[in-house]
Each structure stands twice: as C-alpha cells, then as structure tokens.
Design a binder for these strands. Structure first.
Length: 981
DNA sequence: TGGTTCACG
DNA sequence: GACGTACGTGAACCAG
C-alpha cells in the first residue's frame, strides 16, 4: 500500500503550494512529522471508552482529533505530515522474524478506529502517509533527513523513544502528551550518549517492548558506559576481549551477533522511497463543511462548538467559501477550552495498566457450566492441566477465613469459559439451623452435588501441582480456605496484587472495579445474588443456576484480568517487585492471619468494667461543671457548651460550621485551668480505649480458635504498607500508660513468649540513604543519637551541651522531613509560629543541602511522571501533583516526599517477612510470626528458643535491604506484648 | 453517609 | 500573597 486514497495530497496539492520555498523565503519552512500510529495508542489509553451515536467506539478518534487541533492551533505549523505504520510486518521481520512478535493484537474496540482516524487526518486536509514494508518511523526518518538537508527545521511529534536516534541540530522531538521538547541534550540525558550513538546503546540494551534481543544482562546504563568507552558498537564488539569484568566480557563475546542484529532492528532506514514528495507536505485550510459534517457523524459536539466558535472569532463564516488552498498557515481553530486530550497533560500520566493491546480477545458470549459429577470435574481438571494456568475462586458462607465454610469452587481455563462446582449447597427452603448435613426431618434434600471430600481429593493434586499456575483475585482468602482442608495451593498469582503493583495509589483493586476498568465488563454483584440486610442469605442457599452465573463469572473475569495485567506487569517492568516482594507474601500473611494472636479475655473484661466505672464518675463531674446536661460523647454538643454557652476563648469553627473540640483544643483550655476540658480529655481517652479496644477486641476472639484473627489488606495503601482490619491490630495503644495496659491482654500461649523485633529509626535511615546526606549517614554508621546530632548541627550546640528541649526541636524537624515538611505543620507541632518554624527549616536545609535537593528532585520527578518510586522499584502514584490550586498541589507534593520513604520501609519489611520463615526453618526454630505493625514484627516463640529466634529475626531484618546506611533491629520478649517492647 | 476524633507507625 | 497543611492507616461515634 502506498499513500492511501483518504489523504490525496497529490491530487489536491498544486504547484502553488511550494511557492514560498521557491520564492526563496528567508526563514525555511518548519516541517512537523506526526507519528500517527504511536498516537492512536496513546489516545486510546488516555480516554475512557466512548461510542458515537451508531455505537462505533471512537475514544481514540476523539483523542486523535483533539491532538491534531491542538497541534495546528498552537504550532501554527505550515508543513505537516501524519504518518502511520502500514502493516504489522516490515523488512525487519525478514531477517528477524520475532521482531515485535510479542506485540499483541490491538484491542477489539480500537481496531475499527484505525480507518476513522485516517478520515480525521483527511478531514483536516493533512497528508496521511504510510509505506508498505516499512514502519512509520522509517518514513519519518527519511523525511527528516530530506528536510534537514534543505536546512529546514524538523519537529517529530511522538513519544516513542526509538525516534530519539534522529535528533540532531535542527531535528527535535516533541512529546505531545507532556508538551516536552526533546533535543540532543535530553537524548543524552536519557541514553547517556549523544543521539548519533543511541542506536548502538539500544542494540546492546535491547528492548523488551519491541522484542529486540540486545545483549542479555546489559541495560541502558551499562550500554552507554561501554559505548562511551569504546566509541561505537563495532569497535566494542571487536575489542570485547579487553573488557575487565569477566561476566560482561563473556556476554559480549557470546552475543556479538545478536547485538549486530539488534542494531539493524533499531536503526531506522532514512532512505526509503517516499510516497509523496517532501515539498507537497503542506497544511491547507480544511473544508469546514466537510470537517463539521465529519465531526457530526462522530458525535463530537464539543469539538464542533470549538471549531465554530473559533471560526466566528476569526470572522470566517462557516457558510462562506473555504479560503484559497494555498493559504500557507494553518487555519485550524485554536482551542482554548480544555479538550479531553488537553486535560490528560495535566492529569497524572496515563494509567500504567490501561490495557494496551487486547491481550485478551474478549469473548462475545460466555459458557458457564455447573459441575455436579466427578466425570465433569475430571474433565475440568484435565483442561486446567493442559492449559497450565487456571483461575480459581472459592465461595463460602462467610467472610472470615478461619471459620467460613467452603460452599463451592469455580474454575476457568479460557476466557468466557468457566465452571462452578457446588459442594455444600442446601435447598433455599431449608429452615435456618437445619443446615450442616443433619437430617432434621423437615428439611428438603440438598441439590445434587459432588461430596466435598471427593471433590477436594480430586482438586488437591491440581491445586498443588507445581506445573499449574493458580490465579485468584485476593488469593490469600482462597489459600486460607484450602489450607483448612489440607491443600497448600501453589504456585499462585493474584490479580489484585498485580493491579496493586501497577497502580498503587491510583485506584482500587477490587474485582468489580478491575473488570470495569480493564474489560469494560460490569460484574454480577454479590448483593444481587444474596440480597442485603436482614433478608441476606448465605451463599449455600443461593439456587445453583444463580450461584453458577455469579461464581463462574468470578473465575472467568479473574482469568481474563490475569492475561491483561500480567502483560502490563512486563511492559511496566514491575515483574520483579511483584514476584520478589508481593507474591511471596501471600502465604506468609495467610499463615499469620490463620494463626491469630492469643488475647486474654479476662484481662479485657476487667479493664472494661474498670473503664466503665471511671467514666461514670467522670461524666458526673463533667455534668456538674457544665451549664446544662449534655452528651459528652457528642463533639457538636461539647463545642456548643464550651464556646457558645460558657463563652470560653480559643474556639474556632471548622468548615462544617461546628466548633472544633479535638485534643489540641481541649489541651489548650486545660492549660488555662479550664477544669471541664481536662475531664473531657480523660473521659475521651477511656471511652476510646473501652469502645475501640477492650470491648471490641473481646468480641473479636474467635470461638473455634480462641484467638483474634485480623485481616491484613495487601493492596489497600498508597505507599505499599499493609493495613489491618477486623480488628485493626496495628493501632493497639502504647503511647499512654493507660492505653499500654491493653497490650497486657495480648499474651503468648503456655510454654511460649511473645517476641517483638522492630526497626530502629528506619525511615530516617532511609532518608539519609536516599537523599545521600553524608552527615546523617556518618551518624548512623557511628551509632550516634541522630536527633542530638541534628540538633547540634542545626542549632550549633556541641553534643555535650545538648538540652532535651533543643533535641526535641531537632527530632520534630527530622520527623517533619519524612512528612514533607512545612513551616505551618512544624510550627504547630512545636507550638511556635510558622515563621519561626520556617527559620528552623531554612537552617536545617543549609546544614543538609542534599536533603533540599532530594526533596526538589522528588517533586519534579512526581510532576513529570505522576508517580514516585521506592528503592525497590515500587511506583506510588501521586494524585493531584499537577493541580493548579497551590494547596492541593502542596498536599500532593508532601505525599510525593513521604511515599518513597514510607514505601521503601514497607518494601524492606515485606522482604524480611518473606525471608524469615525459611530462615527460621533452616535454624530449626518453631517461632510463628503473628503480626506486622509497619516497622515491627511480633512472634510467638517456644520459651527455650527465644534468644536464638531473636538473633535470626534481627539478622534477616537488618540484612533485608543492603544499603550503605546500616539498618538496626531491636528485640524484646515477655509473656505479653506490653512488656515485650 | 460524612464529619470528627483518636488509636498506631 | 493566597491557598490550608505535617505522611500513612482504621474504627467508633454522632447527627442528619
């Protein structure tokens, strides 16, 4: 295929088009070459699904149209060509068939948009080019060379890094999404070599996206170093024997030919036969009737409005004749209003998991089977074995993994095809209490289903088969259910965790949300199946056909999500984090939850009644001090009493119009001798302890295990931390003496002790490491009191003259650094004015300039990419970092500062957790990990093994990161948690 | 359901 | 100079 008939620049162009050049125009005409193919995908991912009135998907078309308008309006380009890839195969495939072979087919709803996008180019009267046997990039390279030789400036509009090799003086790259210009300097920054050597670097480093092999084990950094040292690829390969590092030398010697092939793959051909002469690439005034008609067909009403508004502003009547085709400048409407595409450039970078390329062809129809006999089950197991990957989901009669009964299992091995195996269903009409297999006479018989034991006996070998990958959504739950039936599910993958790794902080990772986001599929909701509220039934009472539709869909969707997300994981280079940090944690945390922690109910009960008693007394006193009776537990009423009726000073109202009565406010009043304020504070503390801890915790003790089983959420936080719910065991009191008592109720079982090991100052150590602050690093190396050291440096007080007051200030600043410091926040913490706090911060940064640089660099990175990264490579997406409102942006910037620190600490303890179990096993120790509290791990240990266990755990924790700054873990043990610290 | 408060790291 | 604040969580309670 040559130039497509939709473009028709040859027929429309007249000799007059090139007049300005022939007339010897003094400023040579700038040429813009638009990488159309690259754009289609960017536009597709940037916009949500969108259909035109006839149902045809057009989200990529709209994105593309907006981009074209913006380009023409903002750049006032005179010469533009939009260039597309012709076909999947090109000359590169002749000598390397695998080139781009890992590129999946484009998504189904993108395919029809390719032709429409060419219509768009035509509607704007722009040349639309492609060349069979070559890629768009080759055409771009050729035109760029031709124009460059005529001394014309060239701008390549693309975000494809493969085009960076074309950059030179007079040829620049423009990233249309970010609006960033890329010249030789930026290329050198990215590749570590000047543009003309980019191909050599790429040839060595390879490219997994395009399936360019490169030399295994050599990345961009190493490649740039080698090319810089040896000058070019050929010289390097000839002299590879001289390389000192044995591994690198061997790799290069072995893979020299691969590198040469890679170079041929990545080097663009700048001498291809162009379909349209260079001087015909001109912008012409679009035919507005035609343009608007076309926009109408697409249903792009907002674009039409903009075109019309612009034409009216220009005095060009829509009804009037189109201006002469020879008009040299683009007359496309200016778009001041933010288009959908515009807004992308202000929003966070495109979601990494935005599905690129239809990895999963979505089925037109689904086939969900009810499996009620062993033959059918065996057929499914066989299919799973053949496929090597099976999505698994369990249905239970409860949400608590330690007690929920297994009701059924669903499996899927190919998109659109799944089964549900009911195992413990009962007839919906069974009277409550008659379940459980006991024949109480009146109960109707259960529906036909395979006996639980028989089914599990067949499933066990499959679920434990090392050659079959079991995929689940929140697979920790299913793992626990199966574990209770003697099945150790492995190996596993978890779509929720993959999604989390790709989009930490970007969105939720529940299945319903993921199905909608990636598959455009609305799932059947659990509530629709079981009902809600009082009339909710347990899943074992759901009629089988309904249960099948719901449960099989879960497995089906999980499998389809797995294909999409696994692919994105590779593309986003997040495989390592997922496989080394997140996935190994699933069984570890599952075991922690299943073990639970022993809580002494008697201690809690005693405390509850003690608290209740004291609260009653306090409340009586409070009422006596108040002008009238009120509800002490109501902040609203308290505020009215204190500030409206008692007219106390220092009150301020929040945005909801209510008086603030938080502890800070009450403490202020108490200091002035307001008795009621202190009493309310005391009452509140007890109220909190009683309702949130002593009462609630006692209720959470599981009837069958006698222990408390929290649930650790693996994909909940924006930084990579775990969180704990039902109950939250990560916020058990410790800071006050009264609260600390609650920890005495957390005990070890007979013959055991609780061992607590926690990282000392891990976040501050990470700051020292990541920001590279020599003074801080040295202090940690030397084991100096870090806050005192900081105080000494910032306030100029020698260590031996340090006072606790000065140290306290330095400590507050150190913490402030971790939180993304602000004068206001620090001032509030220290009880000084924001101005005074600002002066401290300034002094601090003068002493530790690396910190300020680090913070600025981090913010700039977040602004550019939309995310920040931890030391182990986790990406934390920061919403609002490009917000114009200063307050919101400042908030996002503080998050951007904090996330890499908090997130790295989270990564490190996760890695330690995964390593501790094998380390204990190797040392023949029987300790059991029970809880993780961000920088602390709690174990239940046989008394005789405590010291040895402490040593093993400390050593694993301290060695979990391998940093320059030492990590220190401290251990303590006792019969209860309060004293183990 | 949203706002407030407060427990933890 | 305005913006409205320290970062990350979850649970209980009140009030509408």
């Amino acid at each position: 295929m040559t130039a497509p008939d939709t473009a028709a620049p040859e027929t429309a162009a007249t000799p007059s088009d090139s007049r300005s050049l022939e007339a010897g125009n003094t400023s040579p005409e700038a040429l813009y070459l638009v990488d159309g193919s690259g754009f289609i995908f960017r536009a597709y991912h940037a916009l949500p699904p969108l259909n035109r009135p006839d149902g045809t998907p057009v989200n990529a078309v709209l994105g593309f149209t907006n981009m074209l308008m913006k380009l023409l309006a903002e750049l006032k380009a005179e010469a533009v060509a939009v260039i597309f890839d012709a076909k999947r195969l090109n000359f590169r495939n002749e000598f390397y068939p695998d080139y781009k072979a890992n590129r999946p087919e484009p998504p189904e709803d993108l395919r029809p948009q390719f032709a429409i996008i060419r219509e768009a180019v035509d509607a704007f009267c722009l040349p639309c080019l492609e060349l069979e046997g070559y890629e768009a990039d080759d055409l771009i390279a050729t035109y760029a060379r031709m124009a460059s030789e005529q001394g014309r400036p060239v701008t390549i509009v693309s975000s494809d890094k493969d085009l960076m090799q074309l950059v030179r003086d007079g040829v620049r790259l423009m990233d249309p999404m970010k609006g960033r210009l890329i010249g030789p300097e930026e290329v050198a920054e990215k590749f570590g070599v000047p543009p003309e050597k980019v191909v050599d670097v790429q040839a060595l480093a390879g490219d997994s996206v395009d399936n360019v092999p490169g030399v295994p084990g050599i990345g961009v950094k190493t490649a740039a170093q080698l090319i810089t040292d040896y000058g070019d690829l050929e010289t390097l390969l000839e002299r590879a024997g001289e390389i000192k590092q044995a591994g690198r030398r061997q790799k290069l010697l072995e893979n020299a030919e691969l590198a040469r092939i890679s170079k041929r793959l990545v080097r663009l051909d700048d001498k291809v036969p162009v379909p349209v002469p260079l001087d015909r690439l001109r912008v012409r005034e679009p035919d507005h009737h035609k343009l608007i008609d076309w926009l109408k067909v697409q249903g792009f009403r907002s674009v039409i409005h903009k075109v019309e508004a612009e034409l009216a502003a220009d005095g060009t009547l829509v009804d009037g004749a189109a201006p002469a085709p020879a008009a040299p400048a683009a007359r496309a409407p200016r778009t001041d209003a933010r288009t959908a595409l515009d807004s992308r450039s202000y929003a966070p970078a495109p979601a990494p998991e935005a599905r690129g390329d239809g990895v999963v062809p979505q089925p037109d129809r689904v086939e969900y089977e009810l499996v009620q006999d062993l033959d059918a089950l065996d057929r499914w197991i066989e299919r799973a074995r053949e496929a090597g990957t099976v999505a698994v989901d369990t249905e239970t009669d409860g949400l608590t993994p330690v007690s929920a009964g297994l009701v059924g299992v669903s499996l899927s091995v190919e998109p659109g095809r799944a089964c549900y195996i009911p195992l413990q269903h009962i007839d919906p009409a069974t009277p409550r209490g008659a379940a459980g297999g006991l024949d109480l006479g009146g109960a109707p018989p259960p529906p036909p289903q395979i006996a639980l034991a028989d089914a599990l006996a067949r499933l066990k070998p499959l679920l434990e088969d090392p050659a079959v990958l079991k995929v689940g959504q929140n697979v920790k739950f299913d793992w626990q259910i199966f574990a209770r039936h003697g099945i150790a599910m492995a190996p596993i993958d978890d779509t929720m965790l993959i999604s989390y790794v790709l989009g930490t902080g970007l969105h939720g990772h529940g299945m319903d949300e993921l199905a909608l986001r990636h598959l455009g599929h609305t799932t059947i909701k659990y509530d629709e199946v079981t009902g809600t509220g009082k009339s909710r039934i347990t899943f074992d009472r759901v009629p089988l056909d309904k249960a099948r539709d719901y449960a099989a869909e879960d497995a089906d969707i999980t499998l389809r999500l797995h294909r999409v997300l696994k692919h994105d994981l590779v593309r986003q280079h997040m495989v390592t984090l997922y496989e080394t940090i997140e996935r190994p944690l699933v069984p570890v945390v599952a075991r922690m939850e299943s073990r639970g922690v022993l809580v002494d109910r008697a201690v809690l009960r005693q405390m509850s009644s003690d608290f209740a008693q004291r609260m009653l007394e306090m409340e009586a006193e409070i009422q006596k001090l108040a002008p009238r009776a009120f509800n002490v537990g109501s902040p609203k009423q308290l505020g009215e009493i204190l500030f409206d009726e008692m007219k106390l000073p220092g009150g301020s109202k929040g945005k909801s119009g209510a008086w603030g009565t938080d502890s800070g406010v009450l403490e202020g009043l108490a200091e002035q001798g307001v008795e009621i304020a202190q009493k309310v504070l005391d009452w509140r503390q007890l109220s909190k302890l009683k309702s949130t801890y002593t009462d609630a915790l006692a209720e959470q003790i599981d009837a069958r295990t006698g222990r408390v089983h929290t649930s650790f959420a693996l994909a909940a936080t924006a930084t990579g931390r775990l969180s704990s719910t039902d109950p939250n065991l990560q916020n058990i009191p410790i800071r006050t003496e009264e609260g600390r008592k609650i920890r005495r109720a957390f005990v070890a079982r007979p013959g055991h002790l609780l061992l607590s090991v926690d990282y000392s100052q891990i976040e501050l150590r990470l700051v020292a490491e990541m920001a590279g602050v020599p003074a801080l690093r040295r202090a940690f190396h030397d084991g100096i009191d870090i806050h005192a050291m900081t105080a000494s440096q910032v306030f100029g007080v020698p260590l031996d003259q340090m006072t606790s007051e000065i140290r306290r200030k330095a400590k507050a600043i150190n913490f402030g650094i971790i939180y993304g410091i602000s004068g206001f926040g620090l001032g509030r913490q220290l009880g000084i004015t924001p101005g005074e706090a600002g002066a401290f911060i300034k002094q601090y940064f003068e002493r530790f300039p690396e910190l300020q640089t680090y913070m600025e660099t981090t913010k700039a990175f977040a602004r550019e990419h939309g995310y920040v990264t931890t030391l182990l490579g986790r990406r934390c997406w920061i919403q609002g970092i490009r917000e114009k409102a200063p307050a919101r942006r400042a908030y996002a910037e503080r998050q951007a500062i904090n996330a890499p620190i908090q997130g790295t600490a989270a990564d490190i303890i996760k890695r330690a957790m995964a390593r501790i179990e094998p380390a204990l096993a190797a040392a023949k120790l029987d300790a059991a990990m029970l809880l993780q509290v961000h920088d602390e791990l709690l174990f239940e240990v046989p008394e005789a093994q405590v010291e040895e266990t402490a040593a093993v755990v400390r050593s694993v924790m301290e060695g979990a990161a391998g940093l320059g700054v030492p990590l220190v873990a401290e251990a303590g043990w006792a019969g209860n948690w309060a004293e183990a610290h």
